[in-house]
Amino acid sequence: MKDLLDNLDKAFESRVRLGIMAILMVNEQVDFTQLKELLDVTDGNLASHLKQLEASSYVAVSKQFVGRKPNTTYTATAEGKLAFHNHLKAIENLLKN
């Protein structure tokens, strides 16, 4: 049982971080507002979770301007996609046992 739990990624312990990753798996690029609406969380909450994912290099951030407005978009890195995949597998294995 302990081995099985080891495979769960600490980065995805939080529902919000797991949700962010799930959205980024099926969308090439998602901006901050979209994430906020889909996950139904506050700005500060979302920002701090995104920072943590960025720190573990699961998420890449790019900033640009749309007209005069700053616009931040997020993408999942190859590393992040792999980690998400492994995490889901670990959950599935837990359920099987």
Partner: peptide, 21 residues
């Protein structure tokens, strides 16, 4: 527990659907 894990999987699935379709 199992129930929570299952719920997590369902939530992930719905988020993926909702955000891309």
């Amino acid at each position: 527990n199992d129930k929570e894990h299952l719920q997590t999987l369902t939530e992930i699935r719905s988020l993926m659907e909702k955000s891309s379709r």
